[in-house]
């Protein structure tokens, strides 16, 4: 049984011009320790899918279950708790707190998940992402890659079983981007379910499985052509 299980999930929005279907009939299962890349062009519904799994949005129909939580039936309070204890996010534009240092940003993740020794956890995770010497730096003092590593560290510090990354390399150069992807790969290897949303087909080559979306529908699910490759073989 997968950590993430979606069955017939759809999301529709009421707009001035009528109903817009962002997602329709999505079935998806993601297991622990699996890295899944959601691929698709702009407007294909991949971020909507990520938001539904992250409980930032609710499905219009279908069943969404993550780590045993039925997201469609959960109350508002249960969804907040779910976000604290089950999923963690990495955003394209990092969304770090500019008034907190790297250590404090990461500690935030540990604090909200209610982990003991939040400072110790934050230090360990920062070392893990290669920023052990940048703990007292504020986001404005860090490079883009470093900021994104802090963002990943913040997500890891929660200790939550599901990691959701929305275009995590979108604002980074190739070299920095591959460092970030390696970190995500490592998280999957350590047992987390990792879902990465991207429009970059090259990144999909590192996935255990690729889910391709178009017009809000899943058009392909399966391992990348030729099987997953190590991150250092990616080129773009």
């Amino acid at each position: 049984m997968g950590v993430i299980e979606l069955a017939g999930v759809a999301r529709r929005y009421e707009t001035g011009g009528g109903v817009v279907t962002a997602l329709a009939g999505v079935d998806l299962t993601v297991d622990a320790g699996e890295l899944v890349v959601v691929l698709g062009p702009s407007g294909s519904g991949k971020t909507t899918l990520l938001n539904l799994i992250g409980a930032l949005d609710t499905p219009s129909e279908g069943r969404a279950s993550v780590a045993g939580h039925d997201l469609a039936a959960a109350s508002r309070g249960e969804l907040f708790r779910y976000r604290r204890e089950t999923v963690s996010f990495v955003f394209q534009s990092f969304n770090l707190f500019p008034g907190l240092t790297a250590l404090e940003n990461v500690r935030f993740g540990a604090d909200v998940a209610g982990r003991d020794d939040a400072v110790g956890v934050a230090r360990d995770v920062l070392v893990q992402v290669g920023l052990g010497d940048r703990v007292d730096h504020f986001p404005a003092m860090l490079s883009g890659g470093e900021q994104q590593r802090v963002a990943i560290a913040r997500a890891l510090a929660t200790g939550n079983p599901v990691l959701l990354a929305d275009e995590p390399t979108g604002e980074l150069d190739f070299h920095t981007g591959t460092q970030i992807l390696q970190l995500l790969r490592d998280q999957a290897s350590s047992g987390r379910a990792v879902l990465v949303v991207t429009h970059n087909r090259e990144i999909a080559r590192m996935a255990d499985r690729v889910v391709e979306l178009s017009g809000g529908q899943v058009v392909h699910v399966g391992p990348p052509e030729g099987g997953p490759v190590p991150v250092d073989e990616l080129r773009w």
Partner: peptide
């Protein structure tokens, strides 16, 4: 920042 906090379940 508030949206980020909400995303983390605050």
């Amino acid at each position: 920042e508030h949206a980020t906090m909400f995303a983390f379940g605050i």
